[in-house]
Design a protein around this nucleic acid. Structure first.
Lengths: 222, 222
DNA sequence: GGGGCGGCCGACCGAGCGGTCAGCGCCCTG
DNA sequence: CAGGGCGCTGACCGCTCGGTCGGCCGCCCC
């Protein structure tokens, strides 16, 4: 190529240092001086490449969003039966989250207690499409007749995402919890959960005193 | 009582304001001036009651820990069959988390990416006992013979906690996700998840190509 | 009624913050 | 080889940060 330098090497180092620091310490706890030192550049150079600390943060976030979205979309290109697709999604999603821990933590911190506008933006740009695909897999299994239809696909998708999010965000707690031996075995964690959910999904459509009926049996204790 | 004033009313207002601000904005983003203004006191008065900003934060955190632990222990005093105990735990835990949203967010932020020492302290003081109780309920159901024994009780407990944590921490995202109609119905969310897990638990001990066997079938793609 | 004491305040401090600016040197072009 | 632009820097700016200090004011005990 002729002369398409793109971001300077120094700019890349700034982005990398900023990503690590923002993910580990949080936006407000990191100073531009910290980032400059970690990247081995002068503070002024950071403002030469980025308009402000916030603009730098947003660029870091944008890249993390883009990479997460790309990896998520690359997941599961081939066709397979619904159970297998669920298994692959769960494994792949968790593996991706752990591979880019800093990026994942950035996104998690962003969705944690986000404003409605922020949440909508993140859903539209990053999570929405994959969540839809996940619910689509479940709905497909239900249409096949293999799975019960009284479980909301969105709820099952949420449960799977919740499991992976928890593993990623609170892994250190998992390591300390009594009786937990899977903190270092994410694949076993993912697989076991999917199998458990799959068995729940294959059960009969809930005859007992469960929570199937849309009637409001909801008694808030008043 | 004669003269046991305890914390001054102003000190209580400071604690309340600090809790709300720390929970919503994060420790580093909140200044002592912000807290003073929100509490309607002078900044100097804050340092009159608390040695430092960090000491104030720790006191807020200590109170939130204590209250969470007390409410969790109050859950489920009466005996019941395992399934019902699981149901009550799930509902109660989620209700408590949402009732004291600020306190819950404080704890969640603390466990998010915590250092090992911090994680251990929080497990020892707050979560450990309840996690043990939850795994105990599951193990009891397995001993009864009602539930399959190839599911790790700790994993099921983790999954339940993960579901509640996710609902609490990322509720705004839930509201924006396509096809999600339970963002405003925490009790339905909790109940449906428990029923799904219960059905998975009642299934046969996993004959297929599941993830039961302790053999390492783990192939990381290398 | 006088005195002490604890809750509380306004004013102030040094440090560190995000951000600016004039200028230096390298490299590419004419 | 002259010149201009760009990547980059050290020094500097105004401001806000967490924290301190001397003193006021009202209550309670003698």
């Amino acid at each position: 190529m002729p002369h398409e330098p793109g971001p300077t090497p120094a700019a890349e180092r700034i982005l990398a240092a900023a990503k690590a620091l923002f993910a580990r310490e949080g936006y407000a706890s990191v100073s531009v001086r910290d980032i400059a030192e970690a990247a081995g550049v002068s503070k002024a150079n950071i403002f030469h490449h980025f308009a402000s600390k916030e603009a730098l943060y947003l660029e870091v976030l944008r890249r993390s969003c883009e990479s997460a979205r790309a990896l998520l979309q690359a997941l599961e290109a081939e066709e397979a039966e619904p159970a297998e697709r669920l298994r692959r999604f769960m494994r792949g999603d968790l593996e991706r989250a752990l591979d880019d821990l800093d990026g994942t933590r950035l996104l998690l911190a962003e969705t944690f207690d986000a404003t409605p506008a922020r949440a909508r933006a993140l859903v539209d740009e990053v999570f929405g499409a994959d969540f839809r695909r996940l619910t689509g897999i479940v709905a497909g299994g239900q249409r096949d007749g293999a799975w019960r239809r009284d479980i909301d696909p969105a709820l099952l998708a949420t449960l799977m995402i919740a499991a992976n999010t928890f593993f990623t965000a609170h892994r250190e707690v998992l390591r300390q919890l009594p009786g937990v031996d899977f903190a270092e075995a994410p694949e076993r964690y993912a697989d076991t959960i999917v199998e458990l959910l799959l068995d729940g999904l294959r059960a009969a459509p809930s005859d007992g005193g469960a929570a199937p009926a849309p009637q409001a049996q909801q008694g808030d204790r008043s």
